[in-house]
Design a protein around this nucleic acid. Structure first.
Ligand code: FES
Ligand code: FES
Lengths: 153, 153
DNA sequence: TCCAAATGATACCATAATTGTATCATTTGT
DNA sequence: ACAAATGATACAATTATGGTATCATTTGGA
């Protein structure tokens, strides 16, 4: 006999509570906000306390973010009393991708790991090819977004 | 005096070790593989042991994935000896997005949370608008990928 | 009838990523 | 000298990811 009884189309909700799937993480977001603020006040050197007041970002976290942006050469830093940060590059030349890469590493929408090793079907896989194409397009579009045009609201 | 000393453009590497930023998680990937296998053998009912051999996916994990796909109405399930799973819908009508939503929840590339609440600038934010547009396009493209055309390699 | 083979439901666990905090050292203008 | 700033770095809490384990239930067949 050939299995007549199907169980029925249950619509039980998420066994795990997921819902995020976000592409831009908190630190990238914070970084963008901070960079926009700095971009709008290029004439001045902005200190962390000022940024904290303006952006309501947890101070130690913001400090870490700014330090990283400095290490990556995106910000200039001035130590000592009256010091702070300012843009090292023209805001129009800082793409959102660069900021994302600082905090989120390299893009790679589908890694398809196979037990810690690189997937054997990697180069034949159809899914991979299609996802890569979508990724390329998205990156191109994200690349067009710069701190410069974000800062202009 | 106006801060002449800049610290120099250090290129210190990632203070955090990141590098993933993947859009498709492991369970989605496993689910796609399993669905493709099922799509290629629609005439039969496929058991978990067979899938484990064919796809080399950890058995208990695969079971959970298949159960969820069944709960969502994507698979039919047959209990008892000789039982297993089979497609409940035509493979050509199962989009990759649907599978992603099952395991990764709703898309939302930029949430921009502001201290656990919804961001106050949400509707004026330029970043958000641009990212949303990119997201829409990416979703449209991912929507075109179906289990059907993936199964055909 | 009883057993083996299959899924259903669910609880648990280990690791890594995310999202922060805290501390101390160093620099610098006054 | 001192206060105000960043530099470097270690630590901690929470959540997401990836995976295991267990027991109950169904079902075909000897
Ligand atoms: S890259 Fe491994 S199956 Fe797609
Ligand atoms: S959505 Fe909050 S600042 Fe962009």
């Amino acid at each position: 006999m050939r299995h007549p009884a199907q169980i029925g189309v249950a619509r039980v909700l998420s066994l795990r509570t997921r819902g995020s799937m976000k592409l831009i993480t908190r630190d990238t977001d914070y970084a963008v906000r901070a960079l926009c603020y700095l971009a709008k006040h290029r004439e001045r050197t902005i200190s962390v306390p000022e940024l904290v007041k303006a952006l309501e970002i947890p101070r130690p976290f913001l400090r870490k973010i700014l330090q990283l942006l400095h290490n990556k050469g995106i910000l200039k830093a001035y130590k000592g009393k009256g010091g702070g940060f300012s843009m090292a590059i023209s805001p129009g030349r800082i793409s959102l991708i660069e900021v994302m890469r600082v905090f989120q590493g390299q893009f790679s929408l589908n890694e398809c790991l196979f037990k810690k090793e690189c997937c054997p079907r990697r180069y034949s896989c159809g899914l991979r090819k299609k996802i890569m194409e979508i990724e390329r397009q998205a990156l191109k579009d994200i690349g067009k977004i710069t701190i410069g045009n974000l800062a202009r609201d």
